[in-house]
């Protein structure tokens, strides 16, 4: 199996006056292509910090991170921006769509930043929206959509540049249980189609669809569970 992502002894410390908050305190992780990994743990255990570092939204205090064999610890800001746009699709708990842009424009945005032609990104955005079940909402504004629909748009946007990996931080946290279940089903479907996914969640239901669950506590990996292939 090909390794897409690797963390080596990653630490993230925050200096708060005299004390140090150790949000991550030496985490190792290796994720292979096509995996579906859940990260669980109590609030404040460092889940979001870990995912932000994996998504290149934040930099670790120490440790190494490798994406598709490339060391990113010393990448320049421009290289990081390019990697965020190309290799990673990030999905947030509160969707974070651009409110001034239509559904299609939101999905097309990462392609625009990546330099894809307008015609091509329209076609692809349309296809992606159909893929997440929103083919009939192409011209809606985010404010005209339900939470579950907005999260689908966010997922379509995360898939725009065909990334190596999808990262989702509590993607169902702001949704009712029915929409949440549908979003999880969508993730399952995408993973079945071959996309690598790492999802932070409190939802015990997720455990039944993922093959691997990592439990964090106080900034370290407390235990890891692997489900046998059925």
């Amino acid at each position: 199996m090909k390794e897409v992502l690797k963390l080596e002894d990653v630490k993230k410390h925050y200096l708060m006056g005299d004390s140090t908050v150790k949000a991550l305190d030496g985490v190792d992780l290796s994720v292979n292509e096509g995996e579906f990994v859940a990260i669980m743990g109590p609030s404040g255990s460092g889940k979001s910090t870990m995912l932000s570092i994996l998504g290149l939204l934040d930099s670790p205090t120490s440790g190494r991170m490798i994406i598709r064999g490339k060391q990113v610890s010393h990448a320049s800001e421009d290289e990081l921006a390019r990697l965020r746009g190309k290799e990673i699709g990030f999905i947030f708990q509160s969707f974070f769509l651009v409110p001034t842009l239509s559904t299609t424009d939101n999905v097309a945005l990462p392609m625009m930043l990546y330099g894809v032609s307008e015609k091509e990104r329209r076609t692809r955005a349309k296809k992606l929206l159909e893929q997440v079940g929103l083919g009939d909402r192409a011209d809606h504004m985010p404010s005209e959509l339900s939470g579950g629909q907005r999260q689908r748009v966010a997922i379509a946007r995360a898939l725009a540049n065909d990334p190596a990996i999808l990262l989702a931080d509590e993607p169902t946290g702001n949704l009712d249980s029915k929409s949440g279940a549908e979003i999880l089903k969508l993730f399952k479907k995408l993973n079945d189609e071959g996309i690598t996914i790492i999802i932070v969640t409190h939802d015990p239901g997720v455990a039944s669809i993922v093959k691997r669950t990592i439990h964090l506590k106080d900034g370290v990996v407390e235990k890891e569970e692997r489900r046998k292939k059925e």
Binding site: L57, A81, F96, L113, Y114
Partner: peptide, 16 residues
Amino acid sequence: TREIGILKAIGASNKE
């Protein structure tokens, strides 16, 4: 600022 965060998260460079 939030929008700037979103843009950067999906691949916009500082210059953009």
